[in-house]
């Protein structure tokens, strides 16, 4: 049911914000929450089906949707940070001196 998926995605995206947001822009926190929720709402059940198809164990759909929201947002954020870091490295030079 869409309402339950939406609620679980909300729980997951809220959980992904634990420990973050201190000294961070509100827009960034909001973006992380929304991207986690969207990932879970639109892709969480598909991921659950994929896991059930690929592995022997069948995790609950709720758990899959929750972890999609929880980990997905952090993963997307990390990809963005990596892109920024690589572009900064390009600007600052590539000499690896520590």
């Amino acid at each position: 049911m869409a309402v339950e998926v939406a609620l679980v995605a909300l729980v997951g995206s809220s959980a992904s914000l634990i420990g973050t947001g201190e000294g961070e822009k509100k827009s960034k926190t909001f973006r992380r929450g929304v991207s986690g929720w969207c990932l879970a709402f639109f892709g969480g059940q598909d991921l659950a089906a994929l896991v059930a198809h690929m592995f022997d164990f069948h995790p609950s759909e709720g758990v899959c949707v929750f972890f999609t929201a929880y980990i997905g947002a952090a993963f997307l954020e990390r990809v963005l940070v990596l892109i920024n870091a690589f572009s900064a490295r390009g600007l600052w030079g590539k000499n690896d001196s520590k």
């Binding site: 609620l7 679980v8 729980v11 059940q45 609950s60 709720g62 758990v63 949707v65 929750f66």
Partner: peptide, 12 residues
């Protein structure tokens, strides 16, 4: 998704 799945997510 059932209500049980929702409870699973809350436990997680």
């Amino acid at each position: 998704m059932t209500v049980n799945d929702f409870y699973d997510a809350l436990l997680c």
